[in-house]
């Protein structure tokens, strides 16, 4: 069975997907402040790596990196409600890309799996 990553068209599709996703995040008042980075390209590269993982593409996902990458945001108040908002935006991105319900559900559950890493709740 092919992955969603392959179905969507591989790397070039990830570029298009991350642009859709990042536009949604930046215009979502609930979470935009966490993503407003002067280095927009660097910020998007990280998100692209995350989407590639969520879509079943080539990835070396490291929960530890995810925890380290977000620890400074915990001090700024990052919590479950923000993760909810990001996952909601991911869902909207998937439907905009025309992803079917079953694939969408599986991608969202992979993203959901990163929640505890992002919020630093995974035991070290």
């Amino acid at each position: 069975m092919s992955t969603l990553y392959e179905t969507l068209g591989g790397e070039p599709a990830m570029q298009a997907a991350v642009e859709l996703f990042y536009r949604k995040i930046l215009t979502d008042e609930r979470v935009s402040r966490f993503f407003e980075d002067v280095d927009m390209e660097g910020q998007m590269a990280k998100q692209k790596a995350f989407l590639t993982m969520v879509f079943g593409g080539p990835s070396e996902y490291s929960g530890k990196d995810m925890t380290e990458g977000h620890s400074h945001l915990l001090d700024q108040g990052l919590n479950d409600s923000h993760v909810d908002a990001v996952i909601e935006n991911l869902g909207a991105t998937l439907s905009e890309l025309g992803v079917d319900a079953a694939s969408s559900k599986s991608a969202l559950s992979i993203a959901e799996g990163a929640r505890d890493d992002v919020l630093g709740r995974r035991g070290s």
Binding site: G42, A49, T52
Partner: peptide, 9 residues
């Protein structure tokens, strides 16, 4: 390095 998959650069 990080992702080792050609996306994080």
């Amino acid at each position: 390095y990080s992702c080792k998959a050609g996306s994080c650069q």
